[in-house]
């Protein structure tokens, strides 16, 4: 019996070790309350589909020596499985993966790739579909048809656009058919706003300033517009057009604000800009229309680090527990029609 007991201990110990070292329970502590988190902005990808100049830009931001051979690192953080590991480390319950069609700037992550990586865990991962807009005069019909087909998949819960990366004006009505597609599929539209640090990105206000989105917002009241990065100026690392983004949210009920990336160590070295824009949103009375995203995975540990910085900023801007829960998870659940997540104890 005793021998059996020892044997049992030897059998169980390795598994006990695994349990002890497993991921932390999902959720974060905010002002003494456990809150669930949904990260609505993560990028799966294929390093080979990233343009050379952007590969160089990304590699230069990796810690040495990872930048020397960035492909291995990138492949290690861009898959669905790797993203789940990042979510586990950050105690995040679920996430939304972005498709991207920006071959001249940040590269291409197809709708098919997003759906494939989503299979890593369909109960925790969803996707935003996108479409190529190059040669729009000739190819819009086919591109919209492909977008519609992607949105027919229940795993795709919205549309991702980035005018500065994709090189089309925010106010060009030729592209408003994308918003019509959003209405047809009841799909929220995420839009990159503000400047971008990536090589080849358009920097003129027509591509970056959310003010140029007003025509689309006003003429498509049934579309939920999520203003990504809140108009942040990533080149000069300042709030940029954040006031404009907030003003649009004040005046239009179908505008949401997503402060991803702008508070990262690289984009907000002093740590002052994220609390500042969150405070501005609260002062303007649109705190309930913020939605959390990180813009990861970028590098190992980024998702957890960005969440921590966001919690610090929320507290600094004096957000209540109820407001924080809306921002961190519940807004994403209601906006994208995904399940409501609860924090684990």
């Amino acid at each position: 019996m005793h021998t059996h007991g020892v044997s049992m201990v030897r059998t169980i110990l390795p598994f006990a070790f695994l349990i002890a070292c497993g991921p932390p329970p999902k959720g974060v502590d905010y002002r003494g309350t456990r809150l669930a988190v949904v990260d609505m902005h993560l990028h799966p990808g294929d390093w080979q589909q990233v343009p050379e100049s952007t590969q160089g830009y990304l590699a230069s931001r990796f810690p040495f020596p990872f930048g020397l051979r960035p492909e291995q690192v990138a492949e290690g953080v861009l898959t669905g499985e790797a993203i789940l590991d990042q979510l586990d480390d950050a105690a995040v319950s679920a996430a939304i993966l972005f498709a991207v069609y920006a071959p001249r700037t940040v590269g291409v992550a197809t709708n098919e790739l997003v759906l494939r990586e989503r299979r890593a865990d369909t109960s925790r991962l969803w996707g935003l579909a996108s479409l190529p807009v190059d040669r729009w005069d000739e190819s819009s019909e086919a591109a919209l048809a492909a977008l519609s087909e992607a949105l027919d998949n229940p795993g795709m819960v919205g549309i991702k656009l980035a005018h500065a990366h994709m090189h089309f004006r925010m106010d060009d009505p030729a592209y408003f058919s994308i918003y019509d597609m959003a209405v047809a599929h009841d799909a929220p539209v995420y839009l990159h706003t503000g400047t971008s640090p990536f090589p080849g990105t358009r920097t003129e206000p027509e591509y970056t300033d959310p003010a140029y989105l007003e025509a689309a917002i006003a003429t498509h009241p049934r579309v939920q517009f999520i203003l990504g990065h809140m108009g942040y100026d990533f080149i000069d690392q300042r709030p940029g057009d954040a006031d404009t983004a907030i003003d649009l949210a004040v005046r239009y009920d179908n505008v949401w604000l997503e402060p991803s990336a702008l508070g990262s160590r690289g984009s907000d070295p002093t740590g002052t800009n994220l609390p500042l824009v969150l405070k501005k949103a609260k002062t303007a009375g649109v705190e309930a229309r913020l939605i959390y995203g990180s813009d990861g995975p970028q590098s190992p540990g980024f998702a957890a680090d960005y969440l921590e910085r966001t919690l610090t900023a929320l507290e600094a801007a004096d957000y209540s527990v109820e407001e924080a829960q809306l921002i961190l998870a519940d807004n994403a659940s209601s906006l994208f029609g995904i399940p409501t997540f609860k924090a684990e104890k």
Binding site: S60, R61, F62, P63, F64, P65, F66, G67
Partner: peptide, 13 residues
């Protein structure tokens, strides 16, 4: 313990 590409962090080898 080199610090290459400052100010990016470097991983010790």
């Amino acid at each position: 313990l080199p610090w290459v590409h400052m100010p990016n962090p470097s991983i010790p080898g």
